[in-house]
Each structure stands twice: as C-alpha cells, then as structure tokens.
Simulated scan of single mutants.
Amino acid sequence: MSQSGVAEGSNGAEEPKMEGASRKAIIAAASANLVIAVTKALAWLLTGASSMLAEAIHSVADTTNQIVLMIGGKVSHKKADEDHPFGYERVRYLSGFIVAVVIFSVGGLFALYSSYEKIRDTLAGKPDELLDSRWWWVPLVVTLISACAEGASLRTALKESKTDRDGLTVLQYIRKAKAPELPVVMMEDSAAVLGLIFAFLGVGLTVLTHNPVFDGIGSACIGVLLVVVAAILSREMKSLLEGESATPESRQAIHDALSNSDGVDSVIYMKTVHLGPDTILLAAKIAVDPGDSALEVARIIDNAEVAVRAAEPLVGPLFLEPDIRYGDRRIKDDEKRPEDEI
C-alpha cells in the first residue's frame, strides 16, 4: 500500500475584497449614468426623439447595472459558513452575469422596439414630434454633453485597469480578466459612447432631411449594439461562473513552487479553479520518497504550502495529496515497491 493523505492549507482564503480600482470606476460610471439618464429623458419629453428614449433607457439600465455590481461586491465580503465553506466571492461573477442580462432585456430589446414603432409610424404617415418641436436642437446638445461624460467615465475605467491589462487590448483584457467589475464597466462605457454617436447621427440626419426614419435607424443601431455587448458579457461571465482555472502564468508559478519544494520529487497532477477573482483553489498530488515517514511527509506538505503561497498569493484553499512514483509511473496499491522485492 502506498502512503497517502490529504492536507489542507492552514491559511484559508482571505475575505474577498473589491479592488479600489474597480470601485472607483463603478462609482464614476454610476454617477455619470444617473445624471445622463435624467438629461436624456428630458430631451425625449421635449422632442419625442426615439433615439433619446432608447438612450435614456440605456442609461437607466447602466445605472442599475452599477448598483448590482456594487451589491455583489458587498455580498462577496461575507465570511465563509457551513453552507458556503469557500465563501461568497463568486457572487461577483453572478452580478456580472445579471448585468449582461439587464443590458440585453431592458436596454437592447427596448431600443429595438422603440425603433420599430418610430419607423412604423413614419411609414404610416404620422407626424413626427421631433420635426414639429422647437426644441429639436436639445437632443443634439444632450448627446454631445453625454458623450463627454461617458468618455470621462471610460477614461477612468481604462486608467484604473491599465496595471491589470499589462499591454493587453480591451477585448483581450475582457476575455482574460478574472474580476468582472472593470471589464463590465469598460464594455458599458464603450457601448455608451458608440450609442451616443448613433443617437447624434439619427437625430441630426432626421433634422437635416426631415425624414424621421433616420431617428428610428439610430435607435435600432443602439439596440443592436446593446445586444452584442450583452452577448459578449454573458459569454464571459458564464465562463467565470462555470469555474475557470488560474491563468497559465499562475499555474506555471504554482507548479514550479511545488516541484522545487524540498522533499517533493515531482508533481503528479495539479488542478486549479477560481473561487472568485481574488481566490484560487488548488488541489494537487505530489510524489514523495517511499522511505519518508509520516512526520517527514507532513513537513514536506507544510513547506510546499508555504512555497506555493509565496509564488502565488491568490491561492486560498489548498489540498495536497502525497503519493509515490515508481520509475515513470505512480505505484498502484496492489503493486510491490522496490524494497518489497529485496
């Protein structure tokens, strides 16, 4: 029989904590979206511009999203309990997924419906409020001011993520990031700026050509944009919820730390999964010398734990199982060891 056992790291995962960069970006985005939502709604009430209504709903959805992200960050601080032994940090992933659904259902679908109504009424020959209003210029001013505010919010998110991105493009960062807040805010703000360009063109072309269809097309472009953003975010958040492994760089660092730890002959296998953005669960089987005593094996495991956490501080719950290799393979329970044949 081979010696075997399981050891868990004595230092459990730290309480999940939302990074200051994420919180700052969320607060900046929420503040901007709240003010912009009210402004866009007033512009819609004054002119009846379909693009302004779509953008107002978009901003309301974005504000709600930021609130959901902040709630998720707060809940993730809850301490582990009997029913949730690994803590609540994955709530942050759930918040990101809910945000994607909100963008799609509230923002995207409403914008598409608003576009349909505008184009239908125009083709039916109904008079257009925007062209009949003396406030036709208000939506243009609102979109320009809103674009500046959203651009400032996006600039904050890009600035706060600069260290984490480490030369990656925005899309690459969104695909690889384990923390959902900054990628979500960056996608939202990028969509907001592009959506405002669509709204400005829709209203502007309507005023210039006296054809309300352009306003409806602008609203449709906003809807399609939001659906695309929602699909991208949903896909990434779904992957995080399912359980992604640590990054290749982290896995290599952990593997090297185990392999080079005193008393460890080799790593038989190793598995990692992100319990949350700030916590990695590690389970590994390590090969030790057949002649090691139980006390020596315990010491080897303790030293390996220290080495792993020094190499990758995000490692929280840690399970190491000692085993024995014979030649190029592990000794099975029903096989003889070399010393048994002497």
Rank of each mutant, 00 (worst) to 15 (best):
D262T: 10
L94D: 05
K178S: 11
G202Y: 04
M270Y: 03
K178E: 13
S190C: 09
M186W: 04
V288C: 00
Q3Y: 00
E150C: 07
I280V: 14
R309T: 10
T143R: 04
V6L: 11
A43V: 08
P139Y: 11
T39Q: 03
L69K: 09
S114Q: 12
V138Q: 03
D215H: 14
L233M: 14
V273E: 06
P127C: 01
V35Y: 02
P139R: 13
V106K: 08
P290N: 02
P180A: 00
K285W: 07
V308P: 13
T163F: 04
L314S: 15
D81Q: 10
G87W: 02
F86R: 12
G276Q: 07
V264G: 05
V35I: 14
G9H: 09
F86W: 14
I57K: 10
K79G: 12
W136H: 11
S51D: 07
S114N: 13
E89P: 11
L225K: 09
D62C: 11
A179P: 15
V185L: 11
S250Y: 06
V184E: 07
M270V: 06
A43E: 07
E305S: 03
G243C: 13
R92G: 14
A49T: 04
M70L: 15
T39E: 01
T39D: 00
V315L: 07
K176L: 03
V203T: 14
S261L: 06
L196M: 09
A37N: 00
M52W: 02
T143F: 11
A191H: 12
I27T: 15
F97S: 08
W136N: 08
R309M: 09
A157E: 08
T163I: 08
L225A: 06
